[in-house]
Design a protein around this nucleic acid. Sequence first.
DNA 1: AACTTCTGCTAAATCCATTTAGCATATTTC
DNA 2: GAAATATGCTAAATGGATTTAGCAGAAGTT
Lengths: 340, 340
Amino acid sequence: MNRQGKKITIRELAEAAGTSAATASLVMNGSWKQHRINPDTAERIRVLAQQLGYQPNQRARALRLSRSSLSGLIIPHHRNRFFAGLAEHFEHESHRRGLIPIIGSTQRVPEIEDKVGASMIAQEVEFLVLAGIRNPSKINAMSRRAGVRCVNLDLPGKDTFSVVTDNMGGALELTRRLLAGLPLNAPVMFLGGRMREYATDLRIEGFHAALSETGRAKTSATVLCCGYDPQAARDALQRIIDAGNDLPAALLVNSITAFEGFATLWRDHPELFSGIRVACFDWDPFASCLPIETIMLRQDVEGLIGRCFDWFDAGQERAGELVLVPPRVVLDNYPPDRNK
Amino acid sequence: MNRQGKKITIRELAEAAGTSAATASLVMNGSWKQHRINPDTAERIRVLAQQLGYQPNQRARALRLSRSSLSGLIIPHHRNRFFAGLAEHFEHESHRRGLIPIIGSTQRVPEIEDKVGASMIAQEVEFLVLAGIRNPSKINAMSRRAGVRCVNLDLPGKDTFSVVTDNMGGALELTRRLLAGLPLNAPVMFLGGRMREYATDLRIEGFHAALSETGRAKTSATVLCCGYDPQAARDALQRIIDAGNDLPAALLVNSITAFEGFATLWRDHPELFSGIRVACFDWDPFASCLPIETIMLRQDVEGLIGRCFDWFDAGQERAGELVLVPPRVVLDNYPPDRNK
DNA sequence: AACTTCTGCTAAATCCATTTAGCATATTTC
DNA sequence: GAAATATGCTAAATGGATTTAGCAGAAGTT
């Protein structure tokens, strides 16, 4: 075979076959017929390539063709079902198109977002998806300058095409179910996320719409945007208790990470939560096993990634346009009789 | 700036500065001092590079230097805390070394494993970590041939250095706690994983060792290796019930995915599980909130990735050697009084 | 004035695969 | 038998950055 640790080049392959590198290249890339290479020669080269374990140097190839064969996805982190699901589908769709996926996480820190974005662009990814980036304009602009096709996912931006979950519709549906049959004067709360952030604002809007529908005043509900950190959500609830107040009768939690804070507090002090109804704008298999009736919303991860690649495949610009993907309500741990 | 969608090359940068490409390259790579480039010239080039937004073409650079600046991690999937944690730490450590991490998942399908491995090697990653690959020998061999440094994580192999959790010690500790105070004749069970697979076998060994310690016969416990699929684990338990038998009094679940099957069955039929004690060789924040006393084991994700990079940094071969990383017992949802 | 030494820079080769234009033979046509 | 056509292949340019060997000219030395 080849020398230890050294990859064989097309020139060596050609030499072994007694041809020129050009011939070998034409054969390896399947365009030998148009170039009238003798079928026997082609076969000989193909067999030899197999035997010698010839693998074209991807970097030389990419340089020549100006195609990196890379695709990039940026997510806040891996440690939640939503982003992990995005990662898996992104991988799958990338492979289907012969692209090698690079996934980078940023912990939602803007500086890291920019750095990871820049590094993906420096790698000349052919397609870049920005998921959950609060302010994607900067990376959108860098992409445009570098000629990298870039789409925003989950949180949109005006500088390129965006794909997002139907946040308002989802929150409306979720809140409707949460309020069904609840006394009009029962205290209701929205917990987690960040004010003035696209997704959170729309979810609050859906939440308020459901309140109005049922004859409740917007002001009758508490909205507590404490970010996405589990501990922050827990602390927010704890402070209510410490202040001597009761927890709400119905609670809409804005993300699975905030829900984690809720869950650990519930675990440690279940007595505080008796009779509470909960809904969560996200889904997790274990969360759906907790013995708290929780209405969960499963975002359509496959659909979201699918729309991104549709845009990529179509090759249209559509800057500023938005595609909404509806989420699905999940009632895993609802008692069957209320599972209409 | 540069023309739309076209990146500026070092030759254009050099032209703008009125120098040769060689000079520009020397300046951009910091080796200009050794080459007696005039500090003024160097400064001029640096300023211009900034203004024009010059970014060296990574592919040309990689081709010339035979360094891809890529690192690769292969995992079964993203959708669980253990592998997601590995991914995040791998990313972090890669960035610290100026490497761009590529993460690929394989759904534990051998054909996909080989394909993803081959594609990483074709990309000439400088460092490759194979996590949770049952039979890494093939990819180990491919790596060696291509001169790619490769380490096995979680499941070891004899062909290169391996880093694994202390499965036996962990299972021993976990089982000890599971059995503490349990009547000698209470039925005990081990659920999930795959027979003859390194990790599972060692965990069973630890499980048996704890049985012996407490005066129980190996044969007194049931070992049910039904793989890693949640549904398979659930079905395995369901079959016991369908056969008219009781579930065990103490259950050691071999992975978080199998635990998911256990959890959904428990959710749907809690009455079947009264008084059961459970331990799980893995951890998940929501799982640790279930109102079932569960002894969980949190693998040291950071330590595992850390040992991999230590090996990479040291540059030694150590083929076949094994490093054990101890896991940590977590008792999140244990009542405080038993939380010694 | 003839020499060495130093300064500041560059030409050219290199990494490897791809692709176009075109060169020899061989074969066919009238 | 000369011209036209077909066959099978290759030389050379290309992509962009890196690096070595070495060229001019200035400055210093005796």
